[in-house]
Amino acid sequence: MKPLFRLLQFVLLFLLMIMLPTWVSATGPRIKQDIFAPNPNQIYALDFPPFVTTELPTGGIAVELVTNLLKAQSLDAVINTLPVASMMKYYLLQEQALGLITSHLQINKEEQKDLIYIPLLQIQQYFYYFQAKHPEGLPWNGDLKTLAHLSFGVNEHENLEPYKKAEINLQTGKNSALYEKLHAGQLDFIADSPLTVNWYLDKHYLSEKTQFIKMQPKAGDELLYLIINKKHPQGDVIAKQFQMELGKMLTNDQYNTLLTQQLGNGQKLTEIFSPLPVDSK
């Protein structure tokens, strides 16, 4: 019996050697990323540090908030941060992306019909001037008319009508260019969130940071939205899930806790954010 068993063992080993190519045990193919299919749920976020930025491991406060909403609803989606609005618009309208995280995007009324706007953050905006240019300060008291005939640097996508009405001279441009112009004395004032101002000044004008003066009272609020695309196959369903989860987070204070964790430096939530519009809950 034993010799027969040994013979069988030998035959089996021989067959295995023939049937299996030698490289199977020796090595494996190089894995390239294109073997993985892309996630169908793509969300695009527009650079807006520190609310949206690749510089922070969390992706920024707004991205962190959306990540938490996704987790809570066990939704699988990829958030991509982009530097230009036109790419966001392309992905939304041409690629039927699931959604966008942004404050302003020039989308016409017809296109807006297919979009669901979910307010994520209401960010307080303040006017800033450069002290070297205006050692005496500016006469801001909450009425735009007090700033008439001064040069205001503003993002071109923002609503410019109130400033025009107040006869304020407008110069549009990208954020970085506006800060440079303010520093160079080519602008009298700009508007931004204190967190964003700190971010830029720490990066570019650290030694002159105290020269950039925040004016009271606040200039207004800017809403940062999660815009969901109804044309995405899951758009409607996911939008409802997001709205429900955000409502829960607002009610049980998880929303405020999460934002407070992101702020640091002893900053108070009420100095940075205003409450979301009532219908968000």
């Binding site: 650079d47 690749t54 510089e55 982009l82 790419m87 990208k174 970085s176 260019a177």
Partner: peptide
């Protein structure tokens, strides 16, 4: 046009940022 919108320049006029800031924007275009 995308480069211009993102504030990318050829660098022959020196921008007021680090090269890392520029490269990280460029990579996403």
């Amino acid at each position: 046009n995308f480069y211009k919108e993102a504030g990318i320049s050829d660098g022959f006029c020196r921008p007021n940022e680090t090269i890392g800031d520029m490269v990280k924007r460029l990579a996403r275009l």
